[in-house]
């Protein structure tokens, strides 16, 4: 469980996900993977690369483009005692298979009074920034986090990606594992170099539901997940040049949500900015801000701010999309407007 970073092995998130799956499949014959293009191709994002060669087509199963059926089948196999992993190529495709997830997988433990567990992992690609338009760029974090019965994680770097994947496979509940395309290490999508980090070969887990303070500071807490963490770290660098000390919290998990770490950080800094690439309203940012204000509003020296995606379908045109995306400059602006006490437009 300790973070042994004494390794020179720098992995991409894609490689670290594949390694975690490989190690779990070696030790547990009940683990198998299904999804579109995951076998010979190794997954569109490389999450299963090399696994077909090692485990064969029975355990690394290409599926038809039939999400309703194969994600339903994932729920059924999990309930029957296996630990399936399924890839939904883009989270945007959830529309045709959501019933299996939120009405079956997420509820059957409860409906059965705990007789039936659903130990499945749904790994799915999220995020935009590369002009893939409104059906291939969404995050939809809060859509999953909102509905009870699913754990939800989203790593910002390869070390966490491996530990969270291991934890997700071992978990007796459905875990929605949301990997951000811009962090995968796939050059053809563009990639954030900060996501490729030292990652031990030995298997380890990161507890689901634990956030991490990835940069300590005293003047403002910036909370984010996945790509938002990298935006926050860049903003913290910029703020540091003006003498502002920003603390950055990587949520890592949305369900369970580590409210304590956020509350503790804000208690120290007195200011809160939440970064979220998901739509602004009814989302992660609102939940984090509500958590802090409900707990003890007197800890806040200023109204909290959010840097989020506006409530519009994601546009194709690059300059439209970039105009809408959260970024480090917007976080710095949010801080400056916050300390001036400027009103937030509604």
């Amino acid at each position: 469980m300790s973070e042994d970073l004494n390794t020179d092995r720098h992995l991409t998130i894609a490689r670290s996900m594949a390694e975690a799956i490989e190690q779990q499949m070696e030790s547990d014959p009940n683990v198998f993977v299904m999804g579109e293009d995951i076998a010979a191709l190794g997954g569109v994002y490389g999450n299963t690369r090399g696994l077909l060669e090692k485990f064969g087509p029975e355990r690394i199963r290409n599926t038809p483009i039939s999400e309703t059926a194969f994600i339903g089948a994932t729920v059924g196999a999990a309930q029957d005692g296996m630990r399936p992993i399924v890839e939904l190529m883009f989270v945007d495709f959830i529309g045709v298979c959501f019933d299996a997830i939120y009405n079956n997988g997420a509820k059957n433990n409860y409906f059965s009074g705990g007789q039936i567990n659903v130990p499945m992992v749904l790994m799915t690609a999220v995020g935009g920034g590369y002009s893939d338009a409104g059906q291939h760029s969404q995050c939809l974090y809060s859509t999953f986090a909102h509905m009870p019965g699913m754990k939800v994680v989203s790593p910002s770097n390869a070390y966490d990606a491996k530990g969270l994947m291991n934890a997700a496979i071992r978990d007796d509940n459905p875990v929605i594992y949301m990997f951000h395309k811009g962090l995968q290490g796939m050059g053809w999508l563009g990639t954030e170099p900060g996501a490729t980090v030292a990652t031990p070969e030995d298997s380890y887990t990161i507890e689901i539901g634990k956030a991490k303070v990835v940069r300590e500071g005293t003047d403002v807490t910036i909370v984010g997940l996945a790509m938002g963490v990298h935006d926050a770290l860049k903003a913290a660098d910029k703020l540091a040049t003006t003498g502002v000390s920003a603390e950055v919290v990587d949520l890592r998990s949305l369900v369970p949500l580590d409210r304590e770490t956020v509350i503790e950080s804000v208690a120290k800094t007195g200011r809160l900015i939440v970064v979220d690439e998901d739509y602004n309203s009814y989302g992660v940012s609102g939940e984090i801000i509500a958590t802090v204000t409900e707990h003890d509003i007197s800890k806040l020296k200023a109204s909290p701010r959010r840097v989020t995606y506006p409530d519009i379908p994601i546009p194709f045109s690059r300059h439209f999309e970039q105009f809408c995306m959260p970024n480090a400059d917007k976080i710095v602006d949010a801080y400056q407007s916050m300390v001036k006490g400027a009103a937030v437009s509604v």
Binding site: A133, P313, S317
Partner: peptide, 19 residues
């Protein structure tokens, strides 16, 4: 123009080649 994401495109650049 839509495929280029321009203002004169079918939807002004909102949809792109898949929409």
């Amino acid at each position: 123009a839509e495929i280029f994401g321009k203002e004169t495109g079918l939807s002004g650049g909102r949809g792109g080649h898949m929409h």
